[in-house]
Computed example of a mutant assay.
Amino acid sequence: MLKINNLVKKYGNFKAVDDLSLHVKKGEIYGFVGPNGAGKTTTMKIVSGLLACTSGEVYIDGIDALKNRRLVKRKIGYMPDFFGVYDDLKVEEYLEFYASIYDIEGKEKDELIKDLLALVNLTDKKDAYVDDLSRGMKQRLCLARCLVHNPELLILDEPASGMDPKSRIEMKNILRTLKDMGKTIIISSHILPELAELCTNIVIIQGGKAIISGTVKEVMDNVYKTKSIKIKVIENADNVINTLKEYVEVSNVKTLVNNIITADFNGNDEVMSSILERLIMKKIKVVDFTTMEGNLEEVFMKVIGGENIEEH
């Protein structure tokens, strides 16, 4: 759905985007991760046709977006991180205004607005003034506005910024619904655990460059070469330790309180299954057998070098 090739955006001698290349497939929820000033918003604005690039290529659904901006804009729904001010405008009037921009009128407009308000859970707020809405409601209304022309690609810049936990959950559920409808979604966020839950793929950007990309699991596996395993048993912790030491894939075995054993593990799922099978064959009463992997926040900090993260 989206291909970015060698994208560059310069401001004088400063490169806000530096030779960035990405490929987002149709139907993905693709996460942009990076510190402030990494180039996420700049890239999103270039893709949306709101900012000219210095060099590079952008293709949306096979169309050269830099040479056919008017054509591709109908395929894009862009949601900025700042909603704006709309004095004396009601929710329904707000959507009617944007529907009129796309020449949607009459019964079609009425049905569209009804469906969009239902999608973003704002049906009971249609007669409320926009400025009286909560931050979360405004964000959902802004998302509804992006959907007025039924775009195939949604570009959402910090859609959950400033939301309370309830509003963030509502936004996540809406985005999952949109994915099920076949939309391709690019989303930037500082709420990294939620990106890990939501996104099919992510890219970590720093200094305008793509540092690492892939599925969340691929990125984590790339950063963390070893996992940790944790085993809790009712008794015979020493027997568990002896069993673990038989595997070359296991190292740094430790015994914690309450018959909990941890160890570093660099094997695959088959080896993991073999360990559990051996423990059961030895009639060791296993209460818990889990892997402990780094979370996306830790991966982010390790990749950008923001702090020293203990290896798992």
Rank of each mutant, 00 (worst) to 15 (best):
T226Q: 05
K227G: 09
S228R: 13
S228K: 12
S228I: 12
K230C: 10
I231Y: 02
I231R: 01
I231T: 00
K232R: 14
V233K: 04
A237G: 04
A237N: 06
D238W: 10
N239P: 03
N239R: 15
I241E: 13
I241G: 02
N242C: 12
L244V: 10
K245I: 10
K245G: 10
E246I: 01
V248W: 02
V250G: 07
V250Q: 03
S251L: 12
N252C: 11
V253D: 07
V253M: 13
K254L: 14
L256G: 14
L256W: 01
V257W: 05
V257T: 09
N258M: 06
N258F: 10
N258T: 02
A263M: 04
N266C: 13
G267W: 00
G267P: 09
G267M: 04
N268A: 06
V271A: 01
M272D: 11
S274N: 10
I275R: 03
I275M: 11
L276K: 03
L279P: 00
I280F: 06
K282H: 12
I284L: 13
I284F: 05
V287W: 02
V287Y: 03
D288R: 01
F289C: 05
T291D: 09
M292T: 15
G294Y: 02
G294L: 08
E297V: 07
F300R: 05
K302H: 04
I304C: 04
G305W: 04
